[in-house]
Design a binder for these strands. Structure first.
Length: 676
DNA sequence: CTTAGGG
DNA sequence: CCCTAAG
């Protein structure tokens, strides 16, 4: 009998390796193959975008058509120009696997090339995360507000279009068509050479599928007015399908051509940020019994069946994942290429650097802020997996979830000294992020984009839209709120724990393995039902989780030692049952600390004080404080007990906030409370 | 709205 | 930190 017990845990942090994995590891994961080639990363990105664009059009067009057929819709214009008979979804089944980038961190190279308005407009959703990420990165690199602000504008624009897409797909599509066609036309004039290739996944063919003409640098154009970002753009030169091959050429107005050996554009549906920006994602490993197409092959199958859309969504997730990963890779790579003084331990390091030959420097005097990111926090990921789930499945599940978020348009939040820096237009210098000291206090976190939109949509949508019917054959199966994502395990492996371990790396290597995928239009919850043995134990999906998806979880703000000090002092004086008073006494001005927070913190403090120092995490709390916590806790516990027993004198005395408790002082050396 | 606890 | 039953 398989245990149905599940492990629930929150996930707030995601470690970002400072130094890329070794070649072997990279190879195994299949994501670092092109890591050292920014150009390719860019090309890849662009191709992916283009593919998504086309697919989106198809998706829109086929929405009314029979499910099995994927008729090119909005891509027709393109085809006509290219005089090609038909447009079909770009086949990337084989390419998907491990071909995409790493994370949302994108190289500026790609960014500067991803500025064609038409493409961006048409791929608002797709680019959302990319832009955001680049935004952040560019900000850091250039320490300039111009690019930042401009990107912000684009970001907003994307948001806008994304919304439009959801609200009025047809209209949006039209605009996209126009833009894209213009792009093509423009490109044809500029460069008549077309690129043809097959849809095979092999690199050589892919080279033919995509040609990118990339701008050399983002920064070397130091023109004041416009950010170089907008001076370099690309347009889709051509897209055609010959036989079973796809041709997609992308270029910009520069000379440099890049080739992308990989394409990842299988995604079928447009994933609105609204659907993606989940705050809370609940994953249940998918029962194999539910699994429809556990293998990559289903990618192909999906193309011709009803589930195509769903599968494409899945694909999109995968796509986003890989793309993102690729980007990260590139990013990281670039970073290291330029920065020699990066601390291996992930610590932050900074130093001013003169021109970087690589970038041409728009301003020779412009110092650069160098730093590495050791960890980047992810707001909240809620998982629910069976105990029988393997580590591998857990990894893949987390990875998939994270990438789903990233692909859906996650933003990077910048925190300085734990405080969120919201003004995107400020420069690093203005923000105070320039010296090493400040960098030490610099942190980043991911935050799903379009939270507001998501929330609004969620609220406004009928509950029914957020709920899907239970899968047949699983009576007790919980309602999968939105997305059922299989965990990419081979059935055989699933049934064999021993093999699971073996297959772990496979799961990780190919997080994009196509499988069953379903996604509701409005819910952002990601539910993965574990495909473990017979532990079909499906965890009921509580309704409240749905609700929580719409609300933004507060950013975590760990208590500082100072705060703990104040809290301890206040509790020593007031006791543990008067959190409101504690709040007013010690955290009057701390808006972000509610009395519930204080209560919770006290709870954790007590717990922390009881465990061994080795088990403690986060900023270490002085033992002295912890001792006081224990003393106060013991004291007030006893007194409360007494109170209940009828002895209320002490308690009554302390009930007045102003009264100091001599008795507590005896137990714990109390000091004046510091009002924060 | 506050507490008190479980999640 | 969130969510909520209780008071």
């Amino acid at each position: 009998m398989v245990s149905k017990k599940r492990i629930d845990y929150g996930f707030n942090g995601f470690r970002v390796p400072v130094i890329p994995k070794g070649p072997r590891s990279a190879r195994r994961r299949g994501v670092f193959k092109k890591a050292n080639q920014d150009d390719e990363a860019c090309a890849f990105e662009l191709l992916a975008l283009a593919g998504m664009l086309l697919q989106e059009s198809e998706s829109s067009a086929s929405s009314n058509a029979s499910e099995g057929n994927h008729q090119p819709a909005f891509g027709q214009g393109v085809i006509e120009q290219e005089k090609h008979d038909e447009v079909k979804p770009i086949i990337t089944d084989n390419i998907l696997r491990g071909s995409c980038g790493e994370s949302q961190f994108r190289t500026e190279v790609a960014m500067k090339n991803c500025t064609q308005k038409s493409v961006l407009d048409a791929n608002a959703d797709c680019l959302q995360g990319c832009i955001s990420a680049n935004n952040n990165f560019d900000c850091r690199r250039k320490a300039g507000a111009d690019v930042k602000s401009e990107i912000c504008e684009w970001d907003n624009k994307f948001q806008h279009y994304s919304n439009r897409l959801v609200e009025a797909p047809e209209n949006f599509r039209e605009s996209c068509d126009v833009n894209v066609n213009n792009g093509f036309r423009q490109e044809k004039e500029a460069n008549s050479s077309g690129f043809q290739g097959s849809n095979s996944a092999d690199k050589s063919s892919m080279k033919n599928q995509l040609e990118l003409n990339m701008s050399r640098t983002l920064i070397d154009s130091n023109s004041n007015a416009k950010s170089p970002l907008y001076r370099k753009s690309f347009s889709i030169a051509s897209y055609s399908k010959h036989g079973n091959g796809n041709k997609l050429g992308v270029r910009d107005d520069d000379e440099k051509f890049l080739r992308c050996s990989k394409v990842c554009t299988k995604s079928k549906t447009f994933r609105s940020p609204q659907r993606i920006a989940h705050r809370r994602i609940r994953k249940h490993l998918f029962s194999r019994h539910w699994k429809v197409a556990p293998n990559l092959k289903d990618c192909e199958l999906s193309r011709s069946d009803m589930g195509a859309q769903l599968l494409y969504r899945k694909r999109k997730i995968c796509q986003s994942f890989e793309r993102s990963e690729h980007k990260t890779r590139v990013k990281r790579r670039k970073f290291f290429d330029r920065v020699s003084g990066v601390t291996s331990d992930g610590g932050l390091s900074s130093e001013s650097v003169s021109n970087s030959p690589e970038k041409g420097m728009d301003n020779p005097k412009d110092p650069h802020v160098k730093f590495s990111i050791k960890t980047i926090r992810i707001p909240e990921l809620y998982f629910e997996v069976p105990e029988t789930a393997t580590i591998g499945s857990l990894k893949s599940t987390i990875m998939e979830t994270v990438m789903t978020i990233l692909g859906g348009g996650a933003h990077v939040g910048v925190l300085l000294q734990g405080k969120k820096v919201r003004d995107d237009n400020r420069t690093l210098v203005q923000t105070g992020i320039s010296c090493k000291e400040s960098l030490d206090n610099l942190s980043f976190e991911l935050e799903p984009s379009s939270l507001l939109d998501s929330a609004a949509a969620c609220v406004g949508d009928p509950p029914s839209q957020c709920e899907t019917s239970q899968p047949a054959g699983s009576p007790e199966t919980p309602v999968i709120d939105s997305e059922i994502t299989d965990t990419l395990h081979e059935p055989s492996l699933l049934t064999n724990p021993g093999n699971l371990v073996e297959s772990n790396h496979d799961s990780m290597t190919s997080p994009t393995d196509p499988t069953v995928d379903k996604e509701s239009l409005d819910c952002r919850a990601l539910v993965v039902v574990p495909a473990s043995t017979d532990a079909l134990a499906v965890v009921p999906f509580s309704q409240k989780s749905k609700r929580s998806e719409c609300a933004q979880r507060r950013t975590r703000r760990p208590f500082s030692v100072t705060e703990v000090e104040a809290l301890v002092r206040a509790v020593e004086e007031l006791g543990t049952g008067r959190w409101r008073d504690v709040k007013f006494r010690a955290f009057e001005n701390a808006e972000h600390r509610t009395y519930v927070d204080l209560k919770d913190k006290w709870k954790t403090l007590v717990h922390t004080a009881k465990i061994s120092p080795q088990q403690r995490r986060g900023e270490p709390v002085p033992q002295e404080l912890l001792d006081r916590v224990l003393a106060a806790h013991a004291y007030w516990s006893q007194h409360q007990a007494k109170q209940h027993g009828g002895k209320t004198l002490k308690i009554t005395e302390t009930s007045s906030a102003e009264t100091e408790k001599p008795s507590i002082e005896a137990v714990v050396q109390s000091q004046p409370v510091n009002h924060l």
